[in-house]
Simulated assay, not measured.
Amino acid sequence: MTQSIAWLQDEIADRMLQKLDIVKLDVKDVLVLPDFLGLHTLFLAKRFPGVRFHSAPESEISGFARWQFRVRRWWNSRCRAGAFISMSDFEKTGRIDLPDHSVDLVFSTLLIQDLPDPKYFLRECWRVLKEGGLLSFSYLGPDTGKELQVAGLAKQLAIEPLASPWDMHDMGDALLGERFSDPVMDMEFLHLEYVADELLITDAIALKLVSSLGHRTPKVADLPKKLTLEVIYGHAWALGKHLAKPQDHIAYIDPKQIQRKTTIDSD
């Protein structure tokens, strides 16, 4: 997602934070994936005093801006150093470069729709979350950019389907399948209106609904004046992590989790 749509990241992150207001959670370590230059970390720091940020900066942040980014995250963490994760490495491997059971909260804004396999992402979140930790996320649903799906436009623009066009029911099922507990899903439609075709195309490229056209802005007949965004929100808990994943309807547990009760003869 490019800088031209940074305002949308901030807006969606703000709405996610409002939904966290009613959640009771003691957070010491939070992973922000992806992390971007916005106000969300200030709000998270106020919501969870003393939190330490583990950050995956957007790939577009580089050079001096990246150094400034690190300083801000360190300062927001009250001078407690958290891990910095390479977003480009994550995009290549799908692995979150953090130890097992290392964070209390994973906060992910507008990422899942760009992942080829969201289930693997959910497994990684499950792995890095501590027992009782929370995954909070937002992503774009399948009705996003539906105005561009007209046959005539598809011939004039390089329309790109979402990598993972999951609706909220798909995500709810996947969360349960990956052992998350008590998933809560929500959805809303946002409508972006445009006065110029160039602005709509720029945002469509930033949202990865249209392939990059380089420096060329095509003249497209009957281009719509608005874009619909289906924004899906959700959160789910990592509970019962000591239990193994059931196989063939049989649940297995680690023998180390079995405690032996002993009795002492009083005679």
Results as ranks from 00 to 15, higher is better:
165 P>Q: 11
16 M>Q: 08
245 K>L: 12
173 D>M: 12
97 D>Y: 04
194 Y>A: 11
236 A>Y: 13
157 L>C: 13
265 D>L: 07
164 S>K: 03
5 I>N: 11
151 A>I: 08
86 S>C: 10
140 L>F: 15
249 H>V: 10
146 K>P: 03
72 R>H: 01
192 L>W: 12
62 S>Y: 09
217 T>D: 06
255 P>Q: 00
132 G>L: 04
15 R>A: 07
223 L>Q: 00
210 V>K: 13
183 P>K: 08
57 P>M: 00
128 V>K: 13
6 A>E: 14
64 F>T: 03
44 L>W: 07
256 K>D: 00
259 Q>L: 15
194 Y>R: 11
99 P>N: 10
227 L>H: 00
184 V>I: 13
165 P>T: 11
152 G>Q: 09
162 L>E: 05
5 I>M: 09
107 F>S: 08
48 F>C: 03
25 L>D: 01
255 P>I: 04
148 L>G: 08
240 G>Y: 06
47 R>M: 15
40 H>L: 01
187 M>H: 00
35 D>T: 05
199 L>V: 14
232 I>T: 06
186 D>G: 15
167 D>F: 05
209 L>W: 11
207 L>A: 04
254 D>F: 08
19 K>P: 01
41 T>C: 02
179 R>G: 04
92 K>G: 02
210 V>A: 12
259 Q>D: 01
124 E>C: 12
118 P>W: 08
16 M>V: 02
248 D>F: 11
21 D>E: 06
3 Q>G: 01
